[in-house]
Design a protein around this nucleic acid. Structure first.
Lengths: 196, 196, 196, 196
DNA sequence: GATGAATGAGAATTCATTCAT
DNA sequence: TATGAATGAATTCTCATTCAT
């Protein structure tokens, strides 16, 4: 990689990080492009060299962060032994809940912003789409006695993740209808029933 | 009510309707106070006699519309006979899904905007809070053999509504991961399992 | 006229004058809306209350100034006695040339900017259109022995004015191909021939 | 010419052509240096190796295109036999009008942009100046009985060309005060009178 | 010579909010 | 109460120009 290309990547990453920081700290509606570039230490015009506007940048950040979280959860999950796929999914979700509990700013950002859209939308990044599909396939497992088809499993998993995301947001950020520590057992229990 | 008071209420209602129309048509971020008052046929200053700003107005609209939907669903439900509360809840949810299917603009507005927040937040309208509590109590029923406590039922119902809202939004508006007609049986089946 | 309406008109006129001053002093490409409003002593937003952008304002100014000049020339002309319409037109043009010689900033502004467009375009101001038509009719006169039809006179007058405008601009501003005092006799002579 | 010099000239010509295309298509105020270099397939910096800025480039283009048109008109004219110089000038102008009728984009570009300035300005290209002077001299002819001095002929020709340019622009582009086919006989008639 | 990433001043425009009438 | 002209801070976005490679 040439010096110029290295610099380009550095600038883009600087804008990325600055934007993530600001989006989570003060909310996208209060962030301005000026804010971002000042924080990133680049000129205002440089922003428009890499991104169309602040909304397109936010979309990219959310997809990236969602993907990273799912991938991390999956990597932890795949090395463990489980009795069946239900156990595996529960562990997977449990890890996500714990991560969001520790990372409230990420939770705020993901919630109600494309959020898990990547899970069901044609993300233009082929690599991400491919890995997500693999992840789902692995999560499903290949046991003969699975209770549902892979298609239904996929759709059910989609619902589970949407539910998890909603419950986490309300219980962790607003503590409604109860704190996450009270809601988590209920949530996991509900998911277990869903997977029966 | 005097004629003047009637006029006052008329202006407020005009602003309300205009704002609902615009929020659903072009999205809250693209609506301006100017827009609203022009559509409502009142002066710009008049807006500030009735509302703090457009966000507070939107909050009120969402609470009102959510409440109306829940109340309508409940009123239909309460006159029917059901074998048990599970059946009753399923019917209740089924009605909400069908309503949202018919009313896409409402769905867009509710989603990602406080949404069912009224369900778990201290809405400043005492009347609404009271009616919602009654609704939940009625939905729960008073049978001895209910499988969960009323508290757990409340929290579970919260999850069910959040789930329903998410699934409706994605399947009706984006048709992801599948159209609502394909997703609905899956959703109702999942809810049945949750209520077991 | 109410106090408010009087104020409105005052503001609009202030913007008008400020813009005219700046357009003629530094050229439209170097004038900004900020410039204009600062000079006019009004807020930037006020500009957009009255004008779409600086180009639309310039168009209006040019039409107005062209009209004023033509009208002034006509008013001077109509009170004089002439042997025939040729003499009348020559006097009319002579007055315009002298005015432009005295008012170089106006000349710069008019030249190559819609300029005499008002003469041949549907100006949206009915009043101006009406007066211009009267002016042409009066200039033409009603003598039996006029050498050309009124339609041809109109088109010829259009050419004469375009020619005058061009010659004035080049000879007064750039002194090319010669100074106005050398060009004027030539120009008037040419116009006399045209009117034969 | 070395290969490198050939390449240099190729780049400059590419910028030239790209700029001409863009100036005529979208108007100089909407053309950016970025636009031009992208269209020309060269780097942005390369522009500044050959031209000071887009305005200086446009001046050069206009002078070149005006010159080409006059030269073409002259070359066609000079091979024909005419009774006197009036006939010659009429033929010359007639050719220009027809060319502009066929080439509306050129007409738009020339009009209100220095236009025939080359005709009266010290163009920095000696060669062009020399050829234009020859052209005027040839047009004037050498007959003893010419009605005006060569100096007056030069100035009159200047006026005729300015008039022609104005009339063409308004009648061809805006069809005001009438279409070119209606205006042309009037214009040529006027020019004949001017040359008497 | 050629490149194109980076710059940053500055232009256009919007819009919530105020306040005199 | 109701009005709507006026405000001006705030924001987005552009683009000519530079300069290290």
């Amino acid at each position: 990689m040439s010096k110029i290309d290295g610099n380009k990547e550095k600038k883009e990453r600087a804008i990325y990080s600055a934007a993530y920081k600001l989006f989570t700290e003060i909310g996208i509606n209060n962030v301005t492009v000026s804010n971002i570039t000042k924080q990133a230490g680049v000129a205002k015009g440089t922003f428009y060299l890499y991104f169309k506007d602040k909304y397109s940048l936010m979309d990219k950040i959310i997809v990236k962060k969602s993907f990273e979280l799912l991938l991390e959860a999956y990597n932890i999950t795949k090395d463990k032994e489980f009795y069946d796929y239900n156990e595996r999914v529960i562990f997977f979700i449990d890890f996500i809940v714990d991560s969001l509990k520790e990372n409230r700013v990420l939770l705020k950002l993901l919630h109600k912003n494309l959020s898990w859209g990547m899970f069901n939308q044609a993300v233009d990044n082929k690599m991400i789409t491919k890995i997500i599909n693999e992840l789902i396939h692995e999560l499903y497992g290949d046991k003969i006695d699975n209770k549902m088809s892979e298609l239904n499993f996929y759709r059910t998993l989609f619902m589970i993740i949407e539910l998890t995301s909603s419950v986490c947001y309300h219980s962790i950020i607003e503590e409604k209808p109860a704190k996450i520590d009270e809601m988590k057992p209920l949530l996991l229990n509900v998911i277990k029933k869903i997977l029966l």
